[in-house]
Amino acid sequence: MTPMSGYLLLSALLFSIGLAGALTRRNAILVLIGIELMLNAANLNFIAFWRYGPHPEALTGIMFAIFSISVAAAEAAVGLSIILAVYRHSKTTDLDQMNSMKG
């Protein structure tokens, strides 16, 4: 087991935790947090590959992580405001109860 595979395994576990949360939780805010966790798992991969990759001086992994963090911030802001807007209409954040389109 190499040092890098430790980081990659941790990242895989983090991704699975995020996925499990996004699939099983009913609260929209927690689903959003789960998606953020998956993004974070990807970031950890980028940093680990930058650290142990053949060309760390190119800084590509770092750059990708920085951009990904900024996109995640934008996503969180818009996602949470959508949740607020939905809450104003349906008075709930439970995804199972947002079923006004259901026949």
């Binding site: 895989a12 991704f15 699975s16 996925l19 499990a20 699939l23 099983t24």
Partner: peptide
Amino acid sequence: GALIALVVFAVLGWAVW
């Protein structure tokens, strides 16, 4: 949902390993 996540982890873990 938990099963799906577990399967995903198994596949990713196998690939990393």
